[in-house]
Amino acid sequence: MDPPRICGHVQPKATASLAVQACRDLRQQRHQTCTGPSARSLSMVSMTAGLLAWRQQRHACRSARRASEVMQTAPLFEVEPATPEGWSSKMGIVPPDDIRRRIRLTRGMLERDILAYLGDTVWEYMVLRHQYQQVVRSPFTESQEVRTIRQGRAAVMLHRSGALTGREREVLLEGAQKVWLQKVRWNFEGIRQVGINMYCCALGLRTLLGYAYMDAASSDKDLTRIINEIGLLQKPGMEDQMLAEITGGIFDPSLRPPGNYFLALAPLGHAALRLYVSRYLCERPLVASEFIYRVKLALRQEELDAASIAFLRDSATAEEASLMQGARERGDSYAFAFECLLGHLALNLPYRLHQIVSEFGWARPLEGT
């Protein structure tokens, strides 16, 4: 299947109102956002050299002054709905396996804490993606305690099921072995709430997911097998249908309101972006504390606010601008609207998601784009 082509149709009115609003917002905050060189930079990470695109947008103040003028002439790009094979896989993990550039011997190249952090992000992405397609349970019902307990139980189930290969069992056990000794100083309360055994099992599962996502000896086929065994690859609405049958029709699966659920799309988009940033930093070995700090630094709200305004001005389609406008009507930030868009694309058009992320330098651009 041919990859989507970029069309040069000019539709300036679709996002003109967004540009005007962006200009007003930034002018109101001019004395806060335009007082230092770090605020003028649109780089998502000031400590790395990975940001290759939008270098011309170095000053947020200058962008605000010219936003409304540029939006009247800037071309909007339309992406055809067709996507290459593999981008509409059942699992929907991002980026797909043939783009990810896996690492050899991650158990030696990366610290166990980095693999666990990466695996926890994979867990969060798959849980949010699965729950967005259901009505019966909100993504926000999971506390950190519940999250750890579920991961621990899933680890025990996988270990007993025989679904893992010998190497995957080794990774699971290695990730769980005496891990609480390193964490008890700064997460004593979290360990106390769930117990040492459950906490160690949860860290073992996170390490296994990180290994399956990033190691060259594994593949998305193996990751799909593991996630499917956990139960996060059910068809959309399956849990709703089961609840309707159990309650004898009292629960109506059609109760889901039409349109986009922005409060659930934003965390999904945030998790998708965190996967891209984490995969990028995995190629530059760091200690765990620096790795996690750089991921959080890349996802600061002020960075995403500036990047989302530049995205609206330079390359947003009419549909993407409309979705972000719908999220902004709630009075939320541009970063929130941008994460809502990323979550929507992760569910429906991951190829376009990769195009956007690659423009920021967090992924390798695809051939022909």
Rank of each mutant, 00 (worst) to 15 (best):
231 G>T: 02
248 G>M: 08
298 A>M: 12
19 A>F: 11
46 S>G: 00
193 Q>I: 10
188 F>I: 00
266 A>W: 11
8 G>Y: 14
84 P>W: 15
230 I>S: 03
246 I>T: 09
28 Q>L: 15
188 F>V: 01
215 D>Q: 03
290 E>D: 05
66 R>K: 13
262 F>C: 06
120 D>F: 15
322 S>Y: 08
324 M>Y: 13
339 E>I: 04
232 L>C: 05
92 G>R: 08
81 P>A: 13
323 L>M: 14
97 D>V: 05
212 A>I: 04
142 E>S: 07
151 Q>A: 06
46 S>W: 15
93 I>G: 02
68 S>P: 00
118 L>M: 07
43 S>P: 00
303 E>C: 05
86 G>E: 11
79 V>P: 01
215 D>E: 06
132 Y>W: 11
148 T>S: 10
61 C>Y: 13
207 T>D: 11
303 E>H: 05
101 R>A: 03
197 N>Y: 08
25 D>A: 03
25 D>P: 00
174 E>T: 04
79 V>I: 13
319 E>P: 01
313 R>L: 15
208 L>D: 02
330 R>P: 01
138 S>V: 03
11 Q>D: 10
314 D>I: 05
240 D>A: 07
317 T>D: 13
170 E>Y: 15
243 L>G: 01
80 E>K: 11
242 M>N: 09
213 Y>W: 13
355 Q>V: 07
21 Q>Y: 07
157 M>C: 06
240 D>P: 02
32 Q>W: 14
51 L>W: 12
74 A>S: 10
17 S>Q: 14
219 S>F: 09
283 E>I: 00
39 A>R: 06
306 A>R: 07
358 S>P: 00
61 C>A: 03
189 E>M: 10
267 P>L: 07
82 A>P: 01
320 E>V: 06
331 G>M: 13
29 Q>C: 14
211 Y>P: 02
337 A>V: 07
255 L>H: 07
284 R>G: 00
87 W>V: 02
323 L>E: 04
55 R>S: 02
216 A>H: 03
211 Y>I: 06
96 P>C: 10
245 E>C: 08
48 T>G: 09
255 L>R: 08
51 L>F: 15
134 Q>R: 04
10 V>E: 11
146 V>T: 10
271 A>Y: 05
2 D>M: 14
338 F>T: 01
